[in-house]
């Protein structure tokens, strides 16, 4: 047994994810951060200064500015986009929780033989590209679409409802797309729960309903937290859904960023938007990590 070898082996094992993070996350982050401090110009690349080397960086440091970040606060479009993204992500997370919890609960209480099939059905949509599924919703939500056809023929409404290009469609799209990410962690926390705990609760005087609130629900909170963050974080930066299903009334930060980058070719502003979004999300991500660590510690 060579301890030397095993130590370097361990170093490699721990080192690989760090190296990965460094190359594919930290370096791009720094590049974007640098661009966000530049000024937009009509050139190629469309920002200045262009740094060629480290000494060059030192020479040109005076040319960097926080101008783009100031704009984020001063121009209402940005503030509005951030707030509306956070709100849309938050409220769809809450709605998803209400839909996913009974779903996951039913799955976890289903006969053991059915569970793999039910799980399969939840994962099934991933077999089709996300983009294609969102496009499919255009067909469903259009004025002459499937949903309106159904509502009109069932006489729920007389006139077709306008879904497409409204905030409603954005909510439907987000909830549909992210629901599995809410269902899966909830299911896994509910499924591993020991059923004798519920019997014990009933034995000690709980009705089934009370047993749910006092035992099942508290024990599923790690799943609630995991699911909520798994859908909230990507939903904040969502671009495809508001772009394809939403209208001009839906401003979300992902869309604003895209417009800054491709329509206005203002790379520095777009970078500043991206960096700020990242910093905004760091807070919930850290909370999430903490909760996960705690759950891991508590769960045997």
């Amino acid at each position: 047994m060579s301890t030397e070898k095993s130590r370097s082996g361990r170093f490699l094992l721990v080192g690989i994810p760090y190296a990965w993070m460094l190359v594919f996350f930290l370096v791009p982050f720094l590049i974007v951060a640098k661009i966000s401090l530049s000024t937009s110009v009509m050139a190629l690349p469309p920002y200045a200064p262009v740094v060629e080397s480290l000494t060059d960086l030192w020479r040109k440091i005076g040319e960097f500015s926080f101008f783009n970040y100031l704009r984020l606060v001063q121009e209402s479009i940005y503030v509005e986009s951030y707030l509306s993204s956070l709100w849309i992500a938050f409220s769809s997370t809450v709605i998803m929780l209400f839909i996913a919890y009974p779903l996951a609960y039913g799955m976890a209480r289903a006969p053991k033989a059915w569970r793999p099939t039910l799980l399969m059905l939840v994962i099934l949509p991933f077999w089709t590209s996300f983009l294609i599924r969102v496009y499919a919703w255009i067909g469903i939500l259009a004025d002459e679409g499937l949903l309106n056809w159904l509502l009109v023929s069932l006489r729920v409404v007389d006139e077709p409802i306008t879904f497409l290009a409204t905030q409603r469609a954005v909510y439907i799209g987000i909830i549909y797309s992210y629901l599995p990410f809410m269902v899966l962690p909830l299911y896994s926390s509910l499924e591993k729960m020991d059923e004798t705990l519920l019997e014990a609760a009933q034995d000690l005087g709980c009705t089934s309903f009370q047993a749910f609130w006092r035992v099942t629900f508290p024990l599923s909170i790690p799943g609630v937290i995991a699911g909520s963050f798994l859908v909230f974080i990507p939903a904040v930066g969502e671009f495809v859904i508001p772009d394809l299903l939403g209208g001009s009334d839906t401003v979300m930060i992902g869309k604003t960023l895209w417009e800054e980058f491709f329509n206005n070719r203002d790379w520095p502003a777009a970078s500043a938007v991206a960096i700020t979004l990242l910093l905004l999300l760091v807070v919930p991500i850290v909370i999430f990590q903490n909760a996960q660590a705690k759950a891991q510690e508590a769960g045997r």
Binding site: L197, E199, A200, A201, D203, V215
Partner: peptide, 10 residues
């Protein structure tokens, strides 16, 4: 009942 698995609320 005292359960075989104890069934304590974790």
């Amino acid at each position: 009942m005292m359960f075989q698995s104890y069934a304590l609320f974790p």
